[in-house]
Nucleic acid binder design. Structure first.
Lengths: 335, 335
DNA sequence: GAGGTTATTGCAAACGTTTGCAATAATTTT
DNA sequence: AAAATTATTGCAAACGTTTGCAATAACCTC
């Protein structure tokens, strides 16, 4: 056990060829005779040989690694536990692996201000995927300006020098709200923080749907953090102070919706009879909750693929721009 | 822009010293005069200098990277979306970063059979954290035998050559079931797959609690995958075929419990009055569901820290062994 | 101020790949 | 069979760090 690690030179010796030939053979370089290639490759397999990526990266100036940075506002703390965010990361992981790259996971604070330096100059990764625009887009912008190949998961409508991939949040908000209205809601409530890029678009859609309609009253907006707990507290507080003065809720995320749902159920407000409720994201729990949650599905799997494709295109010096992913209304029991 | 990347030699030239001095200065090597160190470091900061990690890793034969491998049974497909697993990964990420390491995320299939070769020999990472024992522990064992520094999140009671960190699943099962019995349940139901290492321990605890008690009948066991969907189907099926022939459920995970809860509510079975329900994990949703879910909390944050500590200890050639993490009963409304 | 000690720096090799170019071997052409 | 081509291989340099060792500079001690 723990036998000395085989290096390429050793493998070459075993095969009776030079190091260069061994290298080319492993890379299936057609300039090497077919028989030699096969021989070397067979020996490599047999001895579980693997190249030293450190050396390889140094020589090639290429890492085959994509860094994923979770960019959370330290204050708002849409905690990293948020199932939706984790789903996004997980889908990105799949997409990255499928392209033969590896995924370096990082919190935003790790790299300090200088992402470009840390990840790209430091040759830790070839490119960056930033999950979440956060409130200070300055840091992203800086990295992009310095030439870091990067793509962002966020709101694609935001004007930017770097490509942003994300759902059509405006349409999502519009459809969700139209749906609430179609189901008979007239006193609407928005739950979320319109200061956040993606959510502000959802909010625009919310308001647009209301403006379209005649019989809907002036809506309420409650600005809260993107957590179920905040939603639970907010609804409890509202019911206590003002009674049930709404009959439809558009929550900016499923976790928020579920927090609201809990508060409503505890106070015996019937969903969907008294209050219609629509969320956003379509996390796994949306289907499992009772009543199951009507929501706007974000196609994270597709988005992840596109994010990765755009990043690799950038590495290839192609021009790429932002892209909106279609959303889909999932009509369930809560509305 | 996109100015030529600064290398150490360039920085050295700027500072008017040799490359070796610059290197030592950056590493705060006390053999270098304090003033020189400060000067070089200041220049480095000013120019956003960062070392080429590829070169550094090659020279040092050390990556400062930990690979996290999600080891799922392809068939059972406790999908990678499982919020609990993602939470574990997220906590490991924090712990790893806190120790100055980086985290390479990977699916088990990426590395093929030969983890040792791929990650360790390939110099992609210094050590491995495997999340989930899976059903074929052979591959883990093989890697360990070949000398891969590795730790596993799983059931610590499993005899093994490698350290396993995980919750005291037996005690968790025991306490959960004792709790159900204390709340008056006499016809118990276990929901989960005892073929899975961790769950089999929970199941042992379940049975032990029942054996301790006089007035509890022979329990039922329904073997299902670890998904809310499977649980929902199973409970529906059971109620349809046999009616309500149980009054207490110990579900092997919260997602399973929530799936069961949904089925019960849809059929107007009152929780906790008709049926008491206890889950396992304490995912975020446990608190948000209605009724909120009584569950056994796994301290993933602590576990993550211990996993990482043990891995680094191994890298330091210390002997480490498996460790059990204390669990805690979180009594909520479902029981 | 000569000899000894210590503090500070630089030279050059090494880590393990990949690849341009030159060299050789095999094949074809005349 | 010599010459010209083509197929196949090997030599050696380069990627950017870190570090053992030797060299120099600075300081003491008597």
């Amino acid at each position: 056990m723990a036998q000395k690690k085989l290096k390429l030179a050793d493998l070459a010796k075993l095969a009776g060829v030079s190091t260069s030939t061994a290298s080319r053979a492993l890379n299936n370089n057609p300039v090497i005779k077919q028989a030699t290639r096969a021989h070397v490759q067979q020996l490599a397999k047999q001895h579980n040989f693997s190249l030293n990526t450190a050396a390889s990266r140094l020589r090639l100036q290429k890492t085959n690694v994509v860094a994923v940075v979770i960019n959370l506002d330290a204050n708002t703390e849409q905690s990293i536990d948020d199932p939706f965010l984790l789903k996004v990361v997980s889908d990105i992981n799949q997409a990255v692996n499928r392209q033969g790259y590896e995924l370096l996971l990082s919190n935003s604070y790790m790299a300090g201000d200088d992402w470009h330096g840390y990840f790209i100059d430091g040759r830790r990764a070839d490119g960056l995927i930033v999950v979440g625009q956060g409130k200070h887009q300055g840091r992203i912008e800086l990295a992009a300006k310095l030439g870091a190949p990067l793509v962002v998961w966020g709101d694609p409508k935001t004007p930017s020098d770097y490509p942003i991939v994300g759902s059509d949040n405006y349409l999502g908000g519009l459809q969700a709200t139209e749906h609430l209205i179609a189901k008979g809601a007239t006193k609407l409530l928005f739950l979320g923080d319109p200061g956040h890029a993606e959510i502000s678009e959802r909010y625009r859609g919310f308001n647009a749907a209301i403006a379209q309609s005649q019989q809907v009253a002036q809506p309420q907006t409650i600005k809260i953090d993107i957590t179920s707990h905040a939603a639970y507290d907010a609804i409890n507080h509202l019911l206590r102070e003002q009674g049930l003065n709404f009959d439809g809720i558009f929550a900016c995320s499923d976790m928020v919706a579920l927090g609201a749902l809990k508060a409503l159920k505890e106070r015996y407000v019937s969903v969907p009879n008294d209050v219609r409720l629509v969320g956003f994201d379509d996390i796994a729990m949306a289907d499992v909750s009772h009543p199951s949650l009507t929501t706007i599905r974000q196609n994270t799997q597709l988005a992840a693929k596109i994010l990765v494709d755009k990043l690799l295109a950038q590495l290839n010096n192609e021009e790429v721009d932002s892209q909106e992913i279609a959303i889909q209304l999932c009509c369930r029991q809560s509305s």
